[in-house]
């Protein structure tokens, strides 16, 4: 458990350093995720001491969004002034994105199966 948590943090830390050092605009945790994935592929399996904290964190992922979400209160002015632009661009863009992705994958999958 502690070992697994340490691995997660080490991957994140190495990710942060690497991205700063290489000057690539990828957030540290994402780079850490890629590092861990490479590590797992090389190692060949997920050890139990890593699976436990990893799955625990993922299961409660939505709780971790709350502190940042509360930060919306700081932007009450922006939200009040531009709410229509925000709402419309979020709804329309999400709608278009869902259609494009689902349609594209559906079509390609059927083609691959033939």
């Amino acid at each position: 458990m502690v070992q697994g948590f340490l691995i997660l943090l080490l991957c994140q830390l190495t990710g942060e350093w690497l991205m700063v050092w290489l000057g690539i605009p990828v957030p540290g945790p994402v780079a850490g995720m890629i590092l861990l994935l490479i590590g797992l592929v090389v190692f060949g399996r997920v050890p139990d001491y890593l699976r436990m904290p990893a799955e625990g964190l993922i299961r409660h992922l939505s709780l971790l969004f709350v502190p940042a979400g509360v930060g919306l209160m700081v932007f009450a002015d922006v939200l009040a002034q531009q709410w229509l632009a925000i709402l419309l661009s979020l709804v329309l863009s999400t709608f278009i994105t869902l259609i494009v992705t689902a349609w594209m994958l559906q079509t390609l999958e059927t083609r691959q199966r033939k």
């Binding site: 943090l9 995720m33 997920v46 964190l57 993922i58 709780l63 969004f65 502190p67 209160m73």
Partner: peptide
């Protein structure tokens, strides 16, 4: 918000390792 975040940052901090942890389900379905 700053006062709130003084406490809430400890929860927020876990987002980093949680993102790294996403490598596990990716590996499972490789």
């Amino acid at each position: 918000y700053d006062t709130y975040f003084e406490g809430a940052q400890f929860i927020h901090f876990l987002l980093g390792p949680a993102t790294v942890a996403l490598a596990v389900p990716l590996f499972d379905h490789r």
